[in-house]
């Protein structure tokens, strides 16, 4: 933590090539994410954002290229190395992916019980801490996932992603399916956690407001490659039809 330099790359993706069912999804994707940064990956539907996310977290193997997390090649470590790597990051899946047979507390406590030697009581207390850190009332802990609203489900899933105190957090469309108020609150929560816990955050999103309010750097994926990266201002300068359409509607309103 403090000993490590802040400009160190946490995620490095080099020349990724992916083919799915004959279609070329990625044709040489290169990107890197520095420690402590909140980075967003955007792109049109079908440009392989979620696929890239799955490749980075070691769920889907790319045809060619290299992915390094914390300096280790994800696709070239043994099983135990991958497991150790996975304990250092948390993932928030799009629909939460909470285990429906466990209540919220048990969902959050599960990784703690499995991967630490802490006594069960302390695991449960830590789970409750994570639940309130994710912005849920502690009384939500004994609810089953099917009893939660969409926004609460996301927060519960965030609590589970934070359970092992990861250094890196992956979010797959964190604000999709949330109303604008909940979505902005969720953005603020992620920013707060990122700032106060020193989390590196990598998110896939469609939400322009998220980009405008909480993201340090944006990476645009198009035509199988990284089209550009930087702030919203930087991306405005890129001449690409999709990017122009993406920014034009909302951004002109903001300027007016």
């Amino acid at each position: 933590m403090p000993a490590q330099p802040m400009n160190e790359s946490v995620i490095e993706v080099e020349n990724i090539v992916t083919r799915l069912g004959g279609a070329l999804i990625h044709d040489g994707v290169n990107l890197s994410v520095r420690r402590g940064e909140v980075t967003a990956l955007i792109g049109g539907s079908g440009t392989g954002k979620s696929v890239l996310l799955k490749e980075i977290i070691g769920l889907l193997k790319p045809q060619a290229g290299m992915i390094r997390l914390f300096g280790q090649d994800v696709w070239n470590v043994n099983e135990s190395g991958l497991m150790a790597l996975r304990r250092r990051f948390g993932v928030l899946f799009q629909d939460g992916a909470l285990f429906s047979s466990l209540n919220v507390e048990q969902n959050v406590a599960l990784p703690l019980l499995e991967h630490t030697k802490l006594p069960p009581d302390e695991c449960l207390e830590l789970a409750r801490l994570k639940i309130v850190l994710a912005g849920l009332p502690v009384s939500a802990g004994i609810k089953m996932p099917s009893e939660l609203s969409g926004g609460m489900r996301k927060r519960a899933a965030l609590a589970r992603a934070l359970a092992l105190d990861p250094e890196l957090l992956f979010l797959d469309e964190p604000t999709s399916g949330l109303d604008p108020i909940s979505a902005r609150a969720f953005d603020r929560l992620i920013r707060l956690l990122s700032d106060s816990l020193g989390l590196t955050v990598f998110l896939v999103t469609h939400d322009l407001d998220t980009l405008l309010t909480m993201v340090d750097r944006i990476i645009v994926l198009a035509h199988g490659k990284v089209l550009g990266q930087g702030s919203v201002e930087d991306l405005r300068k890129i001449d690409d039809p999709w990017l122009r359409d993406y920014f034009s509607a909302r951004y002109s309103e903001e300027q007016a």
Binding site: E125, R128, L129, I131, V132, L133, P137, V138, S139, I142
Partner: peptide, 10 residues
Amino acid sequence: RLRLTEGAES
């Protein structure tokens, strides 16, 4: 935040 975890029901 830890204050908020008080009164948790099991």
